[in-house]
Design a binder for these strands. Structure first.
Length: 112
DNA sequence: CACCTGACCGTGT
DNA sequence: TACACGGCCAGGT
């Protein structure tokens, strides 16, 4: 595994998040076996702008807060994309966060 | 080559 | 409750 594969792994997981569900940076990092790399997951999302196949709006922070909304076009694009998928967002906060939370550790099989 | 800067998170005081 | 700290990855200056 070369070093640059980390972002790719992140994208691979994010791509599998079902519409209408969300997960967190930390959950992805943990799934990849590097629980301390949550920050790097965020950086991967920042770099994911070239990747239309990566639904970055489905990744929020551990509190269900849309911390990365400023990196989308406009002011509310991230929220609108989510609401478009049936996710209710209010004041940058995902409602029923725990309910629609998608944990790769549980939903996804160990590594892919 | 030595910093610096980010879509974060857990722990400690 | 609030802040400080270390760890993670990649690219820029």
């Amino acid at each position: 595994m070369s070093d640059g594969d980390f972002f790719e792994k992140v994208y691979k997981v994010v791509r599998q998040i079902p519409a209408g569900r969300v997960t967190s940076y930390g959950a992805i990092a943990k799934y990849l076996g590097t629980p301390r790399s949550s920050r790097a997951v965020g950086y991967a999302m920042n770099a994911a702008h070239n990747r239309p196949e990566v639904p970055a709006q489905r990744v929020v922070n551990r509190n269900g807060l849309l911390t990365g909304k400023h990196h989308f076009q406009g002011t509310n694009l991230m929220q609108q994309l989510l609401e478009n998928e049936g996710v209710v967002v209010q004041k940058d906060q995902v409602q029923d966060f725990q309910k629609i939370f998608w944990d790769p550790l549980l939903e996804l099989k160990p590594l892919d």
